[in-house]
Amino acid sequence: MSSRSDQTRQRVIEAAIGLLTRGGRDAVTTRAVAEAAGLQPPAIYRLFGDKDGLLDAVAEYGFAAFLATKHVDPDPPDLIEDLRDGWDLAIEFGLANPALFTLMYTEPAREESAAFKAGLEILMGRMRRLAAGGLLRVDEELAAQVVHATARGAVLTWLSLPEKRRDPALFTTLRESMVAAVTNERPAVRDSGPAGAARALRAALPGQAALSDAEQRLLSEWLKRLTEAD
């Protein structure tokens, strides 16, 4: 795509976000977006295919903007505080961009989005570090889903409430409930018996070379059974 086309595409996306912010999803019509961007409606179809294609591009822009706010520390001094910080960052982004956040997270999952995948990898990295440190109470995938669900739910619930019913304690309460649900306050390898040790060892398996692939798969299955027996 040429630089000029890229600039036009960006102008259209920004126009759509402006309409979305001021009037919600219903305000984002191809005619209104074209007018706001200083184009003719057929240009929207040439660039995005249809309105759904335009909304997908707007959501992708949102995921990329959210990704740009994330600070990735590969070796945080406090893993649980790092988890809290990541959760808080999602809340801050959602409250600063309510219409965009709602579009991003109330539509079907956009698993093909490169920015969405990159953000998910950051979240899974946090889960792997917690598991390897013996701090994860549940499976990594479930933990990531809980983190994602509580952050998304907190923002969407807040936005759905009339202002007089909005209590900031909602965020603190949900965040700490999430932390309690997915982590142990102290390393599980010391305090939670075989299941905690199994989670920590399972998380560390990909980084070792002493076992063959078949042996790793077998050991991983045994460790999974131990974690599920907790």
Rank of each mutant, 00 (worst) to 15 (best):
L223V: 01
D167P: 04
A149T: 11
A43Y: 03
E112S: 13
V182F: 04
P168G: 05
A169R: 11
L159M: 05
I122Y: 07
E185M: 09
R165V: 00
L211H: 05
D78F: 12
Q40E: 14
R11P: 05
A118E: 13
S192M: 11
F48I: 09
I17N: 06
V72E: 14
E228K: 02
S212V: 06
L120F: 14
P74H: 08
E228I: 01
F171P: 07
L226W: 04
A131N: 07
P168T: 08
M1G: 14
L211T: 03
R165L: 15
L120E: 15
E111M: 09
L205F: 02
L219G: 01
D82G: 12
E35R: 13
R186C: 01
V155D: 09
P41I: 04
S192P: 00
R46L: 13
L136R: 02
L205R: 03
A90D: 09
A209R: 10
V58R: 04
A34D: 02
V182I: 15
V72Y: 14
V12Q: 04
D82S: 15
Q40R: 13
R186K: 11
L83E: 08
A27E: 04
I13C: 06
A143D: 01
G53H: 07
I80G: 05
L55Y: 06
E185R: 12
H148D: 14
W87R: 10
E215I: 04
R25N: 02
A154D: 11
S160Q: 06
D78R: 06
T157M: 10
V72Q: 10
